[in-house]
């Protein structure tokens, strides 16, 4: 039920979400993230964002991230579509959609996959504005976002507690809810 694709063409997020949840009555929730190209330079010039990747390693890296998500949470299906090649502002660039029985797993796994995709999958962005090209530099806050999930110690304890509090709350409002399995 997982679908991992690297492609130049646009994707139809609605159709992808529908195919994740249709025909599977065990799915109670789908959380989806769509990333799109921002116009970082305001109205000046025509911006192009060129996405380079490492064919082979990219797909393997995405598959490993999705497998890790399955190991941590009970998921019914994960779709990851990442575009490559030249893109323009407002073009959708990435889709991560996660189907699960309840919303907690779907929300968390969707964010987990994005955090690891941004720091581990071998894609590189090159931006062109007003005829000047530059490679986009990695941001420290993306590494920090990933580290939340790796935590031993205090971070994980906080996360576990939040998960537990949420699960307790959900039990009161939604009936029994499976807790995320932690790696």
């Amino acid at each position: 039920m997982d679908r991992i694709v690297v492609q130049a063409a646009a994707f139809d997020a609605g159709a992808e979400i529908a195919s994740l949840r249709e025909h599977d009555a065990s799915v109670g929730a789908v959380a989806a993230f769509v990333g799109q190209v921002r116009d970082l330079n305001g109205a000046q010039g025509v911006d192009v964002l060129e996405l380079e990747h490492y064919p082979g390693m990219t797909e393997a890296s995405l598959a490993a991230i999705v497998a890790d998500a399955h190991a941590r949470w009970s998921l019914r299906g994960v779709t990851v579509i990442h575009r490559v090649g030249p893109l323009k502002p407002c073009d959708p660039i990435v889709l991560v959609a996660v189907a699960s029985a309840h919303r907690g797993e779907a929300f968390q796994a969707c964010e987990f996959v994005m955090d690891f995709l941004k720091t581990e999958a071998p894609f590189w962005k090159k931006e062109t504005a007003d005829g000047v090209s530059r490679w986009v530099e990695a941001r420290e806050r993306d590494d920090i976002a990933k580290q939340r999930w790796q935590g031993a110690g205090a971070d994980e304890a906080t996360q576990d507690k939040a998960t537990h509090d949420k699960a307790t709350h959900d039990k009161a409002t939604e009936g029994t809810r499976a807790r995320p399995r932690r790696a």
């Binding site: 990333g35 490492y54 990442h82 990435v94 941004k118 581990e120 999958a121 894609f123 962005k125 990695a138």
Partner: peptide, 10 residues
Amino acid sequence: IAFFPPVTGG
């Protein structure tokens, strides 16, 4: 063996 800058996808 591949060498490359820190990744910037997503």
